[in-house]
């Protein structure tokens, strides 16, 4: 029963957060200075009547919301207009119908852009995350086990150094190295191979993923390593571990049955948070390796004030962060039953 109430509370908070993001998303980009019609099109060929026609096409000729014509600059308008004729209502109505709109920039449906970019990002960052989690946790475990030995200190320093490496710098270094060793240095696939057999294409994508994934793994494993090490060392200094030792259990048994589960709590938190942000992509890695992921999409959309794409991407990121956190909360209640009662 307690568990059920805990669950309900967490889920409803998550739903509320997403609702809040939905509304904030709409206003956030509209208070930015700049005009989507004029962004990137400062050119005398683009005349006033063309601009007006475009404004009508995007629905930007309508007031943002009752009483406000525009938000930046703030232009107060009629409060007595039909609320169904405002940009805000149309935005909400489209969302309810599952419509994310049409990109101002590419004129393609936002949903298509998001799905394609999301898949690319998940592929790259997902692989990088999984690798860095595995490598980081293993090294951290080993370091804590061999605490205050040369192994521990080298692991510690490696963790600190890799964690503080600038991502783009490491990426460029690996890229220069890789280009001399036959690795493709940009993109997701070799262009012009769409008609090749599937096995070739999969191998091709894997080859393109090597350098960016390696960069990602090196940069992000440090965090897991350090957290795992310190958390496990905390646990190992507890009295009950001493008791376990006194009972004559082997180090392996102590780690496996007594220490690890408790030491995993902080790791689960970071993994959950990082997984949420995974969707946002690693914009620097994407930029260095010309990887067509979500990070790049956000950057382009911001440049062009492409509201529908921005709203779509931010919604996606918000939803995934919230869901990842929800999963972490639920995992907590399993790993540490105390949290339900608090």
């Amino acid at each position: 029963m307690k568990r059920y109430r805990y669950l309900l509370k967490k889920v409803s908070w998550s739903a509320f957060t997403i609702l809040f993001v939905l509304i904030l998303n709409f206003f956030l980009f509209r208070v930015l200075p700049g005009d989507p019609v004029k962004a990137g099109t400062h050119d005398p060929r683009f005349k006033k009547e063309n601009q007006e026609a475009m404004r009508v096409r995007f629905g930007l000729d309508k007031p943002v919301i009752n009483c406000f014509e525009t938000l930046n600059p703030i232009k107060v308008g009629d409060c007595w207009i039909n609320p169904f004729e405002t940009q805000f209502f149309i935005y909400i109505r489209n969302l309810v119908q599952g419509e994310l709109g049409i990109s101002y920039h590419t004129n393609g449906p936002v949903a298509d852009i998001l799905v394609e970019r999301l898949w690319n990002t998940l592929l790259l960052i997902g692989a990088g995350q999984i690798l860095s989690i595995i490598v980081g946790i293993l090294f951290g475990l080993f370091a804590a086990w061999k605490a205050r030995t040369v192994i521990d200190y080298s692991a510690l320093i490696t963790g600190l150094v890799t964690w503080s490496l600038p991502t783009f710098w490491l990426g460029i270094i690996l890229l220069f190295w890789g280009s001399g060793h036959g690795f493709p240095i940009g993109g997701r696939i070799t262009p012009g191979t769409s008609s090749y057999p599937l096995s070739y294409q999969i191998a091709d994508i894997a080859k393109h993923m090597v350098l960016p994934t390696l960069t990602y793994t090196i940069v992000y494993m440090g965090e897991y390593l350090l957290v795992m090490r310190s958390s496990l060392m905390d646990v190992l200094s507890e009295d009950y571990i001493l008791t376990a030792k006194a009972k004559g259990l082997s180090t392996f048994q102590i780690l496996k049955d007594h220490a690890l589960k408790n030491a995993m709590l902080p790791i689960v938190t970071i993994i959950a948070i990082n997984l949420g942000f995974t969707v946002a992509g690693a914009i620097q890695i994407e930029a260095v390796f010309s990887w067509p992921g979500l990070g790049g999409a956000v950057y382009e959309a911001l440049e062009r004030r492409d509201y529908p794409v921005l709203q779509g991407v931010f919604l996606l990121i918000a939803v995934s962060v919230v869901i990842a956190n929800l999963i972490a909360d639920l995992m907590y209640s399993y790993l540490d039953p105390r949290v339900q009662t608090e």
Partner: peptide, 22 residues
Amino acid sequence: DEVIFQTFESPDVLVQSLTSGQ
């Protein structure tokens, strides 16, 4: 027979793609 225009987002990488023959 064919032309492929490939996008390299970083200018330094673009230069590297030419020197490495990609």
